[in-house]
Design a protein around this nucleic acid. Structure first.
Lengths: 198, 198
DNA sequence: TTTCTTTCTTACCATACATCAATGCATATC
DNA sequence: GATATGCATTGATGTATGGTAAGAAAGAAA
């Protein structure tokens, strides 16, 4: 297994040297899952972060009526995890499954400790990830509080054009907090006003 | 100024000793603002985190139409900040103002560096704050995606009973993403089914 | 007290979005 | 080829919530 995305990520984003990466090579554990397979289910403790080497994951919750609320998608070079579950060692209330056949690198606390030991810069990178995450969540909340389905959809395809093309429409609807039917109508209205995303 | 809440917080939550707190005493800067005064406005870089010693703050954004979307309230012992703005040194898109006359402790990067130096345990505490923050944001997004105004309101008064009693209803409405009128109707319906929060 | 201001409520109507049900249209399976 | 399955669209209708406007209630100020 090559895992080139993962290694490039560490070289460029985390500023590790090739030599440093070689030192942790034996700790890199990857896993391949089929479409529909789960990496995390409600009730489990989420002891890994999943780096998407290839493929597409979704992170979602079930509400009381059993409806899926998609909180996040993750394509190549994204990391997804219920960090809270890992951090507080509490059962997760979320699910992670694969929308496409997907290869992930499984990052656990051991791995993080080791990398931090080799290069303390990794800690800085990790914090940047958290900060970015919070920012995107703030934006998400703002949009959900105030914006129409149309506005939210336009923001989505602008922010995640790659995801837009790879996931079924009903999942985008779930991410936006509307029904698939409503999203279909939003798209129809946009088409009528001659909107071209690409 | 006594700042007992702040010091107790550091003693208990951050596990600093009295001696260690004495060492940073000269770095503790507090500020008192009147009701309606701002601690942060859109366009400014948010170089502080604000620990609420006494009073009540709100953290909000304005949408395109000028409507306030309240993202967070902060009562005694809470910390509020646009950490993203501080971290990336970019102008904030948010506002922080006082709902009650409020005394805050202004925490800047210098302060954080100094405390971390004195007691590395502070870093752990800081990360716990971030993790908790992300968890609460996830929950918020889940509720906004799937739950009715009534459900969101019930969750709010359960999660923040103290805030519920101290802020005007139209601000709770703004936090929930509904109009004050709608919230009033939700409350009426709850009263009719003989709901007692306390 | 009286007045002024802000907040909350209520009534009426409008609208965005949900729900239900039918149809179309691919792609997969037999 | 026929048929099943999953997804997108459409129409009819329902419902939750929004918008407007007015009045009631509660504080704040005079």
């Amino acid at each position: 297994m090559e895992l080139n995305n993962f290694k490039t990520y560490f070289l460029e984003k985390c500023e590790l040297s090739r030599d440093e990466i070689a030192q942790i090579d034996h700790l890199i554990i990857s896993k391949t899952v089929e479409k529909g397979e789960f990496l995390l289910k409600e009730g489990e403790i989420c002891n890994h972060s999943f780096f998407v080497e290839k493929g597409l994951l979704r992170f979602y919750a079930l509400n009381e009526e059993g409806k899926e609320n998609i909180l996040q998608f993750a394509t190549e070079n994204w990391i997804v995890s219920d960090r809270g579950s890992a951090y507080f060692q509490q059962p997760s209330t979320y699910y992670i499954d694969a929308i496409e056949p997907t290869t992930v690198v499984m990052i656990n606390q051991d791995f993080i400790n080791k990398v931090t030991e080799i290069n303390p810069n990794f800690r800085v990178h990790n914090e940047r990830l958290l900060q970015n995450h919070i920012r995107s969540l703030y934006k998400r909340v703002s949009l959900l509080l105030g914006a129409s389905a149309k506005t939210r959809y336009l923001d989505f395809i602008k922010t995640y054009p790659d995801v837009t093309l790879r996931v079924p429409q009903w999942m985008i609807a779930s991410y936006l907090g509307v029904t698939p039917e409503s999203l279909s109508r939003v798209r129809k209205a946009l088409a009528k006003e001659n909107f071209k995303p690409y």
